[in-house]
């Protein structure tokens, strides 16, 4: 049963009856998690760079990169522009590659990573959410690729 609220959420031009509307719930849950990680990773990198950049410049720059990637994913999932889904795909993809590469490097070469990033040890400091989250994000984008997308987050 379609309600007035659901109709209100549908994007213009997305009223073809055979196209299912994207449910808002899972995307909002992803926005919550990505938003909090964007804040955590970016704040962590800024503190690291501001207070002790010389100790591990590579690790702290990668820390900052991870923060920017989380911001990209959050913006891509929250906005409804032409580029939104592309940004979300690119961010989640970069995030998945990043967590695998940084995770492996941090275990193989602990000298270059004397201090943790969000992606160190495949995100072990964050109960491995960083390695699962991109899979959830990519899975969601794939699942909703043919759906009508609501105009609001």
């Amino acid at each position: 049963m379609r309600t007035a609220v659901n109709d209100d959420l549908r994007a213009p031009g997305a009223d073809t009856p055979d196209v299912a509307a994207e449910p808002t719930g899972p995307r909002r849950a992803l926005i919550t998690i990505y938003g909090i990680f964007a804040l955590a990773a970016t704040a962590r990198a800024v503190v690291q760079i501001a207070t002790k950049f010389h100790e591990a410049p590579l690790a702290y720059l990668l820390s900052l990169l991870s923060g920017l990637v989380y911001i990209g994913a959050t913006v891509g999932l929250t906005t409804r522009r032409r580029w939104s889904r592309g940004l979300a795909w690119a961010s989640c993809g970069t995030e998945f590659v990043g967590v695998l590469v940084i995770g492996t490097l941090s275990l193989a070469d602990s000298v270059a990573f004397p201090d943790d990033t969000v992606w160190s040890g495949y995100g072990s400091g964050y109960v491995y959410i960083p390695v699962v989250l991109p899979l959830l994000g990519l899975g969601w984008l794939w699942h909703t690729r043919h759906m009508a997308h609501p105009a609001r987050p």
Binding site: T24, G25, P26, R28, A29, T32, I33, I36
Partner: peptide
Amino acid sequence: RWGSICLSFA
């Protein structure tokens, strides 16, 4: 339920 998940995670 997804709203509850959002608040629970926060």
